[in-house]
Design a protein around this nucleic acid. Structure first.
Length: 264
DNA sequence: ATGACCTAACTTTTAGGA
């Protein structure tokens, strides 16, 4: 089962790239972030036409997450929103159980973690609170009999090796010690950073800012992650970054990251 | 030299992103 996470930075702007990617890579599950549209504006017919079932949690203008599942796999037990804060209106979490005849099921989440900047605003405590809610839910999912994959844009640079210029991020919400500690707390629950487990090299990035020629000079950061429960990690075959999509016309500032799991 | 982008919205400027 191939599982991809991709922050598309507007599904409407990125639909041609998404359809081309589905056709070329044929992922079984796609976790999308930053749809930037409401549910009824999602280009459902086009994605279904490519052979995928669709579940969305949209929001006007900002945020928004979705799960796509390629037939004949099926998606059940859909959960929208993270437990722990009924006041949270931001569309940042969707989860479902993915199952099929030829594979053991996998519970997959598409997550768009808050950016958290500026750090002296309420946005930073909101980010840390969201990370803590995610840790508690990730812990609860450990009791699940199924493998779990928590995939998405974490907006956390885990380590200095995950940035071309770590010093530039020293006081940013993506790289502050508290943010990195909260990410490590997720790993401490027993989850594996799928991409890092497959590729120990420096210079592995998933985001390049549109500004300042970041792409051209490879000034990237690694912030899109797939976290695997032990059952999922046992099935991990490979993981890679689809970097070439950043070089297309009108790209997202993020590229897809894909992990392949054995049938189990 | 210290600049340089992109997206959505009741758009002609702002908020948000990272």
């Amino acid at each position: 089962m191939r599982i991809t996470t991709w922050n598309v930075n507007s599904i409407k702007q990125r639909l041609p790239h998404l359809l081309a990617f589905l056709d070329e890579a044929k992922p079984d599950v796609v976790c999308l972030q930053e749809l930037k549209c409401q549910d009824d504006a999602f280009p459902r017919a086009e994605v279904e036409g490519a052979g995928y079932a669709v579940e969305t949690l949209g929001q006007k203008a900002y945020n928004g997450v979705a799960l796509l599942v390629r037939a004949p796999l099926a998606m059940t037990e859909v959960r929208r929103g993270l437990p722990g804060d009924t006041e949270d209106e931001q569309a940042r979490y969707i989860e479902a159980l993915i199952s099929g005849a030829d594979t053991r099921p996998v519970r997959v989440a598409s997550i768009y973690l808050p950016n958290g900047n500026p750090v002296d605003s309420p946005k930073y405590p909101y980010k840390l609170a969201f990370l803590e809610r995610l840790r508690l839910h990730a812990c609860a999912l450990m009791q699940d009999e199924n493998a779990v994959v928590l995939a998405g844009d974490y907006n956390v640079i885990p380590d200095a090796a995950d940035a071309a210029d770590p010093e530039a991020w020293r006081s940013d919400a993506l790289f502050l010690p508290q943010s990195r500690m909260a990410f490590r707390a997720l790993l401490a629950e027993g989850y594996t950073d799928g991409l890092r487990a497959c590729d120990p090299r420096d210079g592995l990035y998933t985001f390049w800012d549109y500004q300042a020629g970041c792409w051209q000079r490879n000034a990237g950061i690694r912030i899109d992650h797939l976290l695997l429960s032990p059952q999922a990690a046992d099935r991990l075959v490979s993981a890679s970054v689809q970097k070439h999509l950043r070089g297309l016309d009108k790209p997202s500032d993020h590229v897809p990251v894909t992990a392949e799991l054995s049938a189990g």
